[in-house]
Design a protein around this nucleic acid. Sequence first.
DNA 1: TTGTAGGCGTTATCAT
DNA 2: ATGATAACGCCTACAA
Lengths: 345, 345
Amino acid sequence: MKSESTTIKDIARFLNISASTVSRALNNHHEVSYKTRQAVLKAAKKLNYQPNALAIGLVKNRTNTLGVLMPDITQPFYSSAISGIEYVAVERGYYVIICQSDESYQKEMSLVDMLNTHRIDGLIICPATTTDRYRHLREISRTTPLVQFDRIVDKIDSHKVVSNDYQGAYEAVTHLIQCGYQRIAHIAGPKQLSISKNRKRGYLKALKDAAQPIKKQYICICTLDKEHMRWCTEKLLDLPKPPDAIFAVNDPTALEVMYVAKQRKLAIPEDIAIAGFDDQSLTSYLDPALTTVSQPSFTMGKTAAELLIAQIESGNTTEISFQKKIFSTSLVIRDSSQRKPETND
Amino acid sequence: MKSESTTIKDIARFLNISASTVSRALNNHHEVSYKTRQAVLKAAKKLNYQPNALAIGLVKNRTNTLGVLMPDITQPFYSSAISGIEYVAVERGYYVIICQSDESYQKEMSLVDMLNTHRIDGLIICPATTTDRYRHLREISRTTPLVQFDRIVDKIDSHKVVSNDYQGAYEAVTHLIQCGYQRIAHIAGPKQLSISKNRKRGYLKALKDAAQPIKKQYICICTLDKEHMRWCTEKLLDLPKPPDAIFAVNDPTALEVMYVAKQRKLAIPEDIAIAGFDDQSLTSYLDPALTTVSQPSFTMGKTAAELLIAQIESGNTTEISFQKKIFSTSLVIRDSSQRKPETND
DNA sequence: TTGTAGGCGTTATCAT
DNA sequence: ATGATAACGCCTACAA
């Protein structure tokens, strides 16, 4: 079935010229006569010629292909970032191979391997929640330009693109405090993730700055499994003095908090306020609409691709100075955190 | 940067044997002594050998790679299908290249081209809304196994995987009728899409079977742009006799209907009922929770991959008899369509 | 069991 | 301006 694709040799034979001339004509090498170029292009069209990227990659040692490895492409934050990556990739003549690790360290490693094997020109990666060893990153970064995205490992040298998780969390929690909530809990992400650490730091600092007590039992470390998100929520709500607000490490978690709260017939935001992180597209349609920290995911994706392509095309001549781009977040205040919406109106 | 990857020649030199022996050892060719195989494997590990998929693909004319081309990977229906595809692909030793057309015919064509150029072994495709010519499909299907997914073109020979759109729509509209709604409108998808046609047919048949009048002004053909979804809703609600229920061609559309209805302070489902199609993950969190038609997207993806791989591995010996797998849907009744929830309790 | 040689489709170098 | 040739990394007859 895959047998009869035409090659430059076929074109050459068809026109009674050499394969190298055909190759040159196809690649706009200036040293080929207008006439032959036209003939070649015409023949190529007629014979339905499709270049073989494998062969080209083999000789050029370049594939014009970027790898993108994300934990879960169904999450709007990632899919929006992917759109941003694709946007600049296409513009710059690169193809994109998208992969998802499903938050599995094993799958992540095997995918990095396959991407390496496919000789991608560069990789944008956001590690899985379960990834706590980084040899695969360090190794691929020695041979392939790498950009770390969102969840990063500081000690690994590469460009990095993140948002200001610390600041975003700080603002969200400060907002809750200003709304009068007194017992603000936090469902945090796995400890090894940079975003978890930074968002938790923001949470703690906000409490501290407002002279609110920090209580250990109000902080729950979540694996980010759906089940565990609910379990954490239940645990918090079952405390003798349950929290009156929950700041969740991300929107999927906030959603589960809301689910459990509704099941318990708690009024949101009267009995309990909820805030998330990400600004996923549907959060504004929820009841009540979710207060959350918005990240410029599309722009972040674009930036990651730009850094990556720049590094690829730098030719590696000089030592690269790696950049860490930190994007500002913005707090989106909606109904899930405003105890008395529209009273002073 | 991409220079120093080790090849089988390096291993051969290292061990003072020939490259072909190394190749055989690496591929478990039974005619190689246990001793040399062990030595080769050890050396491969030590030198950190990574096979070059380009070279292998070039000689084998097989890449062990499947292409997946979807309109929009952010929609849960598609991303869930992709997960299903990946699930069986990984199991069977295939890699998956995911692409999205962003509902653009141009992008779709150029992506098909690039996938072809990369010599994928097979393709699973769901065409863009704007795709109304199918030469690219017909052409790639002549050289590459193809599975049409969800939105299909009947006249193009290939395996097909769809859900029973007609039946699903019929059941949804019948449900609305049974709930007592009298003026049921339909926001349909673009005419060229198979799913639009079939869901509309189901809508019409349900009205007919219930002896409800079919009114042209209650049917709105939508491009599936967000703006146009809202515009269609506005148009329907502005009718002298506005509908008391709207059946939307998919969940994103239903969401926009809900948005507009809420803006107009219409009570759902008292003033107007809403039903969608897809059962996207967040629809159950909405206010009110959305009645919708659920499709087994993950299983559909799995099936598509299975059919594709079977065709790839059939060796094309005999003429293939193409299958059309039609999956049953199931109606998920939630609050957006039940005029008096919890009254008889 | 192992080595040699040729080829997969393309580009690049060197001639002509 | 064009052609011949080697090379990219790997596999596979065929030969030894």
